[in-house]
Design a protein around this nucleic acid. Structure first.
Lengths: 353, 353
DNA sequence: GACGAGTTGTAGAACGTTCTCCATATAACG
DNA sequence: CGTTATATGGAGAACGTTCTACAACTCGTC
């Protein structure tokens, strides 16, 4: 136990695998084996090596690891850090990763395809062990091409036919159905959906899925074969303009289902401003159950897709893929309704105003 | 220009620096020089090499780079991804980095010192070129120890005496002063601050700075030598409880300055619930000017510290440090007030209720 | 036309791991 | 006691860059 001084006169101060090896009196390869807990290591050897690692506070260089083998890092790609739903996903990922020896590194693509591509490439170049892409913008063929080089799990990306990578989703069709069913149960018949403007999102996007679910539930409720869906632009001046126009429409519906809380909350603000009472004049139901929706001031009913669970499930799927699974998996979570005052006065909170 | 086939029979399909070199008919070292635009490269050589890089769609391996030299990556450490102020900082960082050949990788520490340490170590082990720590929890001595190994810029961390690393801050003392001055200008005299519970944050934290500024402005305004500061716990059941107690206090002040929008917004919700009118019974001013504060439903006056600018400034500082600066810099931004209805009816939005 | 000063390109040793053999020691079995 | 399996440890070649030293070549300049 003489942890006196390094025996060989090393002038470099970094503790490498070699330092550990000489300190423990074993070979470099042995230390490597212990760390990766590979086959063919006796308990005695393992003990000696772990003691040395402890004593020297040795940390393997991630860069060097990546050059040859595993880097024990997984990359997470976020489309947008502003959406309050995404932090939940991260929390889920970190939760699963914490007890393992993996770590997450996050990149933010800001919804730009260019940046998204280059971040994915960077993560590959870092020899990361796997990727979790949250609501990626890239088409499925491109993702499949990347998936050849690195295990990929896509979250919030509906392509159940993908064979090269896994997907993890809340069932967005079902979520929209639940919203419509809730509105119907409150007695509303004149229902419209506020969806996302044309150019955003291809067929695989969550928005389109919610539209499909909306249509199906409306038809099933006997409310016409082509229920009304309004498209709201995403950029800021036009967005509010479109909502104001909607609110002041003569034939404004009695209830509205918004594709996302972000839109629903802005709608609530504008409604208050324009004297449209919620829910007396207009019932509103959002999607995501973001923390803001839960505020007493806002009190927005919303569909809850547990971001945390999505993150957890995606991480487990990724790890199993890293460890050898090749058949693709496509996992669905079932979302649920959180009722609040914007749906009906008997929501679950006290009255406003 | 015969980009026919690879000349040598390489069975490995990865394009490495060697592939580029043979394709361009030059040495490996030459290619490396061109990429790092190092000294001693003729225009002719540079052209040949860049052509080859283009033709082969070559991307240098980040892992290999990190092993020997620069990795052209900077690490960003976030204390908490839920705080809506942080995404702005990221946006600022990415904005500055986009045109350069650097890229950002983000880690989330969830305010756990343990995780914060291990993430910093990981980033060092990746041989990242520099670190931006946003509101780190670790004490200054520890940061200084890390700063020996890697350039560090701390954002939202008040330690102007640090010599080993840089700091970039909004002037939180001044921000609190501005808040108090605004309340005074509206004629309020009975002012209290809602701050963060005891155990959170050491002397260098932004919260303590805001307390200092609050006290100074109150004294300057002739409102006693030890103005009232209430501490609100951070965890959820106790937090609301403390706020309710505050709101129902007999000697409740006429105006309140909250250390953060997160607290101010919850306070507004509870006030509405308990029938305390804002601003007639209680004026409220927050800190951060988060997107939620700007909502018509919330309409919270707040101190704006441009997170985006903080991110930009921090990134520039980091790059200059990476490129050789050794003297430490401590940069201050001046925050500003955004007036809204929670401060006075003449805020800037339409009336509520 | 020899000599230094610059300029441009190259060879080859790091960097710190992993991982594929290979050598040895021990156990198992007839 | 030989033969064969099995378990354990080690040597040394990758991995894909950077970077130091140095060679070769081109100019002036004396």
């Amino acid at each position: 136990m003489s942890i006196e001084e390094k025996q060989k006169p090393q002038r470099n101060d970094r503790v490498t695998i070699r330092t550990v090896a000489t300190h423990a009196g074993v070979s470099v390869a042995a230390v490597s084996k212990v760390m990766r807990n590979a086959y063919g290591v006796s308990d005695a050897l393992r003990a000696r090596v772990t003691d040395a690692i402890e004593a020297l506070a040795y940390r393997p260089s991630r860069a060097a690891r990546g050059l040859r083998g595993r880097s024990f890092t997984i990359g997470v790609l976020l489309i947008d850090i502003r959406n309050p739903f995404l932090p939940e996903v991260i929390a889920g990922v970190n939760g699963v990763l914490a007890p393992s020896h993996y770590q997450a590194m996050i990149g933010v693509s800001d919804a730009r395809v260019q940046l998204e591509t280059s971040l994915i490439e960077s993560m590959i170049d870092y020899k990361m062990d796997g990727l979790i892409l949250v609501a990626p913008r890239l088409p499925s063929e491109i993702l499949a091409k990347f998936a050849v080089q690195i295990p990929i799990v896509a979250v919030g990306y509906h392509d159940a036919s993908a064979t090269a990578f896994d997907t993890v989703n809340a069932d967005d069709q079902r979520g929209a159905e639940i919203a419509v069913e809730a509105l119907l149960a409150c007695g509303y018949r004149d229902i419209e959906m506020l969806s996302l403007g044309e150019r955003q999102g291809h067929a695989v996007s969550v928005v389109r899925q919610r539209e499909i679910g909306f249509r199906r539930a409306m038809q099933r409720g006997g409310l016409g074969s082509s229920p009304a869906i309004s498209k709201i632009p995403i950029a800021s001046p036009k967005r509010e303009e479109a909502m104001r126009k909607f609110l002041s429409r003569k034939d404004r519906p009695r209830a509205v289902f918004c594709w996302s809380d972000l839109d629903a909350i802005t709608l609530l603000s504008l409604a208050m401003e324009m004297g449209v009472r919620v829910p007396e004049d207009l019932a509103v139901i959002g999607y995501d159950n973001s923390p803001t929706a839960a505020l007493g001031l806002v009190n927005l009913a919303s569909i809850d897709q547990s971001g945390r669970e999505l993150g957890q499930v995606a991480t487990r799927a990724l790890i199993s893929r890293i460890e050898g699974r090749t058949a693709s998996e496509h996992i669905f979570q079932i979302p649920s309704l959180v009722s609040r005052n914007s749906l009906t006065r008997s929501g679950n909170s006290t009255d406003r105003q």
